[in-house]
Design a protein around this nucleic acid. Structure first.
Lengths: 189, 189
DNA sequence: CTCATTTCTTAATCCTGATTAACTTTTTGC
DNA sequence: GCAAAAAGTTAATCAGGATTAAGAAATGAG
């Protein structure tokens, strides 16, 4: 089902039904099973992935040999390693399904073909990126201004439903601390 | 002098000399003195600023009542509070000149007028934002994977020239620790 | 040139969250 | 349904940086 992507695009730019048809004709939906990978280190990232169903995570192995999650990809989020996608160099990241999921792969060829035919898509991606960049900046602000405990409490009140969908150790990793510490602050109250 | 902006645009997209002329006709260069502000909290951010000369900083006052720098803006970087610019809500940030500087203000009206006439500008900004987003992601990776001391050493070997241009307390703020700690690790070797 | 302000340094103490390790509970695969 | 693996808990010890406070050095304005 591409409807979810088309609806998302139409939240940002106006496209005709013909244009929508063209977009669909160039895309395919890929199902990925829980724990399957879309990208592993050493490989070049081949697409920007629109999550139409389920939940993915982007992570790398840090200096302490532990998984460090940098991003989750929920429904209607784009997830990719832009650095690898742009430079065509091998990635250092994993992209993995946390739940059974479906993604729409948007390759560089898709980008070239479709933005040529539908210039508004360039605007769509500019707006999406501006939103993503703003979110990344806000995340940096939170990291700099709040303690780990404060960030956990903020996160869990802001996204209570999300807590049910990920193991605690993944949330701890995303927030930048250890599962033990998360247990400790959960026990406190 | 707009040449520096035109050159920057031409690194990403092709524009004709006529288009370049149109761009220049809509813009003006603003000089700002060291310590002067382009934005203060409570005001709506009015433009995206291209730094054509000098050095700016983006910062906010954190919960401990201290200046927290989130970004520096060197020559050829764009600097703004995208959140405020996009939503037209009051900003929580300061944008201030660290050295005497010159900026080219790119307002929402400029954006509307010029991207209508020159669609490649949409591509230019998409690419700029993709680069900025990638840099923000990389910064998050560094924060999560390195200690404060490691990040200082990495930064000072990566950008030795930049160290001469900012007071140490500003670098400490940007890197997320105290000036005292910076003194301490500098003394170590 | 001089005084005032800004920036930088040093050191003692304190706090947040990491590490280690053992154990419990839950989930998964066959 | 059961064994094995994965996920979560608890507690003791440890480390990286913050805080506080005082003084030294550099910069700037008149």
């Amino acid at each position: 089902m591409y409807t979810i992507l088309l609806e998302h695009i139409r939240k940002y730019v106006a496209i005709t039904d013909d244009e929508a048809g063209l977009i669909c004709s160039k895309l395919k939906v890929t199902a990925i099973k829980k724990k399957a990978f879309l990208l592993i280190p050493g490989k070049v990232c081949k697409a920007n992935y629109f999550v139409s169903k389920g939940l993915l995570r982007l992570y790398f192995i840090n200096k302490k040999e532990q998984e460090q999650i940098t991003q989750f990809g929920l429904e209607c989020w784009w997830i990719t390693d832009y650095d690898s996608l742009d430079t065509q160099k091998p990635s250092g990241f994993y992209i993995q399904a946390v739940e059974d999921a479906e993604v729409i792969a948007w390759t560089q060829e898709t980008q070239a073909e479709l933005t040529h035919a539908i210039p508004q898509l360039e605007t769509y991606f500019r707006k999406i990126l501006q939103r993503a960049y703003t979110a990344a900046q806000r995340r940096i602000v939170y990291i700099l201004d709040y303690t780990d405990e404060e960030r956990y409490r903020l996160f869990s009140t802001s996204y209570p439903g999300f807590l049910q969908r990920v193991p605690q150790y993944m949330l701890a990793s995303y927030l930048g601390f250890t599962p033990q510490f998360l247990s400790k602050i959960r026990a406190k109250k």
